[in-house]
Design a protein around this nucleic acid. Structure first.
Lengths: 207, 207
DNA sequence: TGTACATCAGTGAACGCGCGTTCACTGATGTAC
DNA sequence: TGTACATCAGTGAACGCGCGTTCACTGATGTAC
């Protein structure tokens, strides 16, 4: 009986050591990064977030200065997690080819896992109207993504990479709007096929 | 003195006739359509919206059943207004060529006028996580946009139009995130140039 | 055309609610001896 | 290694605030005669 009570408390308290605090901070950030991708930057509620990680709302301010401080950090975390998620799928030994990037980015799996996928496509519109600080955070990741694609294409100029990234981000974002699964699938397929052609012709022909 | 007072009241009351009511409903909807494109679906506040059109919050429920009812209707309005705005710019006598569509969509002017521009690029991410009703509203307009582009391209298949639309929507949405104006301009330019090539080669080569 | 009355568009006070944030408290952790 | 105390991670009640929504009211509009 006493043991049961203590276990219940353990689950809730999560310990009070410094290591526990650091671990809790990570859990809060990870969960926030998931939630903003799932429901947007503004929908995040401090109380619900803390409940989700089995803590009470009051403790939040031992970890973050304010809700908007958390959101800024969660956005960075979401962008990193989305990238890591993409790279976890592939074989770490082989270099990432252009077609491998396009295939995994424009997959139905990616479309259907908003809360763990790329934060750019999950939050472009939102961040487009956010403050300069948030925009700069995403800006760095957009640049990185473009650079990675440009390298995979073997281009000096970034024009084609920019176009491919725009099409990929737009396609995933739109595919999540479409309620008709066939149409949604068709968007992913069309962009995948049209864009794949970019690499196959080595002469820099039309796109 | 009496005249002045009456004029002040006129500005606020806006009259009580049925025609006035219909006009007020339109003003509320138009302003809501602007606001959701500027600040997102969720940021809209009934009180602030009514203040903006010189009415008091209580009157709102004479026009709409609820805030979410208004939002659904404002989304449709925003999508229509964005389309109308695009068509107002061009010469109504000439047919819309593919390159004309691309040039105006991917213009700096369009990027810089979120509250009057295309609601798809302003709200893709938001609507992607909204309820089925809102998604269906935007879905119809995405399909229309794809059809218009496909016609301009003279294609039977919609694949290339889907790719062009994805790239345009993604490019405008991302260009609004970038704080570095040069980079933002470069995204618009790159996609404009790469996509323009789609039409010039009539043989259905690579994109 | 003019009057009397019913209708109804818009007003603004009031409501309950969930939110972000603060703070006195508790008890486990870490440290000084 | 063991004890005594300071620290501090997490708790939960309380706060002020803005929100969506309701409603009794006002006075202009529209209609019946």
């Amino acid at each position: 009986m006493m043991d049961v009570m203590q276990n219940v408390n353990k689950d809730r308290d999560m310990g009070h050591s410094q290591a526990d605090k650091a671990r809790n901070r990570e859990r809060i950030l990870d969960e926030a990064a998931r939630q903003i991708r799932e429901t947007g930057l503004e929908a995040l509620s401090v109380g619900k977030l803390m409940q989700k990680v089995n803590l009470t709302h009051g403790g939040f301010y031992g970890h973050f200065a304010s809700r908007s401080d958390l959101i800024a950090q969660a956005l960075e975390r979401a962008l990193l997690a989305g990238k890591a998620q993409a790279q976890a799928v592939r074989d770490p030994n082989k270099p990432r080819t252009f077609s491998a990037i396009v295939r995994s980015y424009l997959s139905r799996t990616h479309r259907d896992s908003r809360s763990t996928g790329c934060a750019i496509s999950a939050l472009v519109s939102d961040v487009g109207r956010a403050d300069a600080q948030s925009r700069e955070v995403m800006e760095r990741h957009i640049e990185d993504f473009i650079s990675a694609v440009s390298t995979a294409l073997g281009d000096d100029d970034k024009g084609r990479a920019i176009t491919a990234v725009s099409a990929m981000v737009g396609a995933i974002a739109m595919s999540r709007v479409l309620t008709d699964q066939k149409r949604s699938d068709a968007v992913l397929r069309a962009v995948r096929e049209n864009i794949a052609a970019m690499k196959s012709d080595d002469a820099h022909a039309n796109i």
